[in-house]
């Protein structure tokens, strides 16, 4: 029997006050989006699952702090913070040897080497911005709150980063010739 799809509107309020049912609904509703969001910020899929799992647990544990208004935005924000913190820790630990990976386009662990290499050339916040706009069609206001930048600045930055990423992705395609 197919499970009824959770309603994001009613879920907001129930999550704030609710129990495991609301948590489970939130997972069903947002897990894939958050996984993809984290994967884009991390420029890889390897740690996304751990982070998103932690996001849900953290959100649930701190649900009293949630205002019941926009669960989606709240989860995105936690995901962003967790992902960036994760990157910082990694970077701090191996910073001397951190190099831009010369990815083999044929290699994939959920994300092609071409995509990963291109994302690596962006800042994590820019990856979040791109993903939020292109994949999830999130508003500038929403993203501005998450990234700590004004919507106007974010709009300009988006245009610039979008061009850059598209160029990077295109260059790789032309140069490597590994596209399948």
């Amino acid at each position: 029997m197919q499970q009824a799809k959770p309603n994001p509107h009613t879920l907001n309020e129930r999550f704030a006050s609710g129990g495991f049912d609301a948590l489970e609904e939130a997972v069903v509703l947002y897990e894939e989006k958050l996984l993809r969001y984290a994967a884009s910020i991390l420029a890889g899929t390897a740690d996304a699952e751990d982070i998103v799992q932690d996001v849900f647990i953290t959100a649930y544990e701190n649900r009293e702090a949630f205002d019941g208004q926009n669960l989606s935005a709240w989860l995105y924000k936690i995901t962003y913070n967790r992902s960036v913190n994760h990157l910082k820790r990694r970077k701090r630990f191996v910073y001397r040897e951190q190099v831009t990976p010369d990815m083999n386009p044929d290699i994939t662990d959920g994300m092609s080497g071409r995509t990963r290499a291109a994302l690596f050339k962006l800042k994590p916040a820019d990856r979040a911005l791109i993903h939020g706009r292109v994949m999830d069609e999130r508003s500038y206001d929403d993203l501005a709150s998450e990234l700590g930048v004004s919507p106007a600045a974010l709009r300009k930055r988006y245009e610039r980063v979008k061009k850059k990423l598209a160029k990077l992705l295109s260059q790789k395609q032309d140069k490597g010739g590994h596209e399948k």
Partner: peptide, 20 residues
Amino acid sequence: IKDALAEVTVQSNNLSEKVK
């Protein structure tokens, strides 16, 4: 960009169960 990111595959591996 959309095409590239859409190709990304993520596996939740029973994320719901793990969280639960």
